[in-house]
Design a protein around this nucleic acid. Structure first.
Length: 511
RNA sequence: GCGGGCAUAACUCAGUGGUAGAGUGGCAGCUUCCCAAGCUGCAGGUCGAGGGUUCGAAUCCCUUUGCCCGCUCCA
């Protein structure tokens, strides 16, 4: 069954109207690619964040048969860190984020190869305007010249080669250029500066010596602390290090609401394991992570597990078993999907790189097996901001039969507000009882008190906020010490004893 | 980055050269024993921003910012 077609515009309007998400710096006409979370949005985000931290760090999964050093059924070992957004710039050279990406680059649309713009040359037949040019890497003109020779024979023109740097060619003429690894003309993109990291300067005086970057992923902070954690926390491979935090990418095109924004939040866990066990752990984490999202209500066809094709793998994942994406069908991506979480096999790329660049030994010594090695890494990396968006999209439920026309069907565990407490009318002592109940419940749950306006309007408000339960104090409360609890999804009401309301919420929300 | 579209109240929108509007929402009061009910009232917009044309611009022109769609990009 496919979800009813809802428009992204309607979701955005509700998020604004009810205080989930606002455009950042809106009173100054906003800023492209940045968003603020409002009162309901931050509760929702915190709930997702806490659910992840609980699932990974506080109560990690139990060890599967035959993989972990601990016996099957024992909890896996995962510890948390919270590392700095700004690190020594050498970190990003080691990780591969700068270097190849700071110079203007030219991509080949066909082969997906990427070349330094200033390292490419082209070879062309002198005096022939209507034949292809062949690009080659500086100093490796052999293949290009052979191809030109063929062309010269075919066209019956003299074989007289002219060579010059690609930078001398107008980008308009790129349509005539055959890429170094391609055999079609016009597949090279215009040169582009790939500077996707935000740059800043450390210290009050700005100079290139003090340049630094805002982290483009939280993962590196974990690798930087691998040795610290091993040395101080008695963890043994296999184990995990988890982190939740902001990351920044100067995206070319921020798009699709908060899906691709320039400042976002990640939830990443690096699972360090023996190289030979990495494929099995990869499979394990794919299943675990899928289950996590399903438990939060992302069910059915809207969730999809997809293996990356070889040519779309990141630089660190090429040698491993690959990357799986957990994807969600957003209204803007339908019928396709958008990435929610990637489970990648990063092999030992990061530890190896940091060992090389820092000169610090990062290998792990297994006492029992008397074996020293660089652990492989399985990385489940989820987008917290994207997760929030997926939860919002999944929750958005049009319903022409109710006054609000729409309600937010959040799983009670992640709903921003768990319950609202209403006195049915503002008299006969009802507000006093309701307020006391409110003060009582709020110690443990996010609850709201609302006595204003008609009861129907108050229910409607809570439907749009996605509050799963509305507790109403009425005439029978005065005589029988019971309240009604209205269920957001079914609209049905049940009577519950006043002193059992807290237990009711605990049970429903799983507190 | 390229091409197209859009921008008027918190939301959805009307207003095509002559005094800024509606519905919804919000707030206050009255009413009200269960689903945006009723009555009364109130707040909120220099029409995204800047410049130009004009006696006069939300309206026409230019620039710019933001959003949406399609390419491109997303290591």
């Amino acid at each position: 069954m496919t979800a009813p077609q809802v428009s992204m515009d309607d979701i955005v309007a509700l998020c604004k109207r009810r205080g989930f998400i606002f455009p950042a710096s809106e009173i100054y006409q906003g800023i492209n690619g940045f968003w603020d979370f409002g009162p309901l949005g931050v509760e929702l985000k915190n709930n997702l964040r806490d659910a992840w931290w609980n699932a990974m760090v506080r109560t990690p999964p139990l060890a599967p048969e035959g993989l972990a050093s601990s016996p099957a059924g024992e909890p896996l070992s995962i510890v948390g860190v919270d590392t700095s957004i700004i690190q020594n710039p050498k970190v990003w050279e080691a990780s591969g984020h700068v270097g190849g990406f700071n110079d203007p680059m030219v991509d080949c649309r066909e082969t997906k190869q990427r070349y330094r713009y200033d390292h490419l040359w082209v070879a062309v037949l002198e005096g022939a305007d209507d034949v292809p040019m062949f690009a080659f890497m500086q100093g490796e003109s052999g293949a290009a010249e052979k191809k030109l020779e063929k062309v010269a024979k075919k066209k019956n023109v003299p074989f007289s080669v002219k060579k010059f740097p690609l930078t001398d060619l107008k980008t308009h003429d790129f349509s005539r250029v055959v890429g170094p690894d391609s055999d079609k003309a016009g597949t090279l993109t215009e040169p582009r500066q790939f500077n996707l990291m935000f740059k800043t300067y450390v210290g009050a005086v700005q100079s290139e010596d003090s340049a630094a970057y805002l982290r483009p992923e939280t993962a590196q902070g974990i690798f930087l602390n691998f040795k610290n954690v091993v040395d101080t926390t008695r963890v043994k491979v296999p184990f995990g290090i988890a982190q939740i935090g902001k990351a920044f990418r100067n995206e070319v095109t921020p798009r699709n609401y908060i899906f691709r924004s320039r400042e976002f939040e990640q939830m990443e866990m690096e699972w360090f394991c023996h190289p030979t066990e990495a494929p099995a752990w990869h499979e394990f984490w794919c299943a675990e992570r899928t289950r996590f999202w399903k438990d939060l209500g992302l069910t059915g066809d809207n969730l999809n597990l997809r293996k990356h094709e070889q040519d779309e793998l990141a630089h660190y994942a090429k040698e491993g078993v690959g990357t799986f994406d957990i994807e969600y069908r957003f209204p803007f991506s339908a019928p396709g999907y958008g990435e929610l979480e990637g489970v990648a096999h990063r092999v030992d790329f990061d530890l190896r790189q940091h060992e090389k660049h820092s000169g610090v030994k990062l290998s792990y010594f297994d006492q029992e097996k008397n074996e020293r090695y660089l652990p492989h890494v399985i990385e489940p990396a989820a987008g917290l901001s994207r997760g929030v968006l997926a939860l919002i999209c999944e929750a958005y439920t049009p319903d022409p039969n109710r006054p609000s026309q729409v309600y937010m069907k959040f799983h009670p565990r992640i709903a921003p507000t768990k319950a609202a407490i209403f006195p049915l009318v503002q008299k006969e002592g009802m507000p006093e009882i309701a307020e006391k109940l409110f003060r009582d419940l709020r110690k443990k749950h996010v609850v709201q008190y609302d006595a204003k306006q008609a009861i129907g309007k108050r229910y409607a408000r809570m439907d749009e906020a996605g509050t799963p339960y509305c507790i109403t104090i009425d005439g029978d409360t005065l005589s029988g010490q019971t309240v009604t609890i209205r269920d957001r999804d079914t609209l049905s009401q049940e009577r519950v004893a006043l002193d059992k309301v807290a237990a009711f919420l605990d049970e429903k929300i799983g507190a």
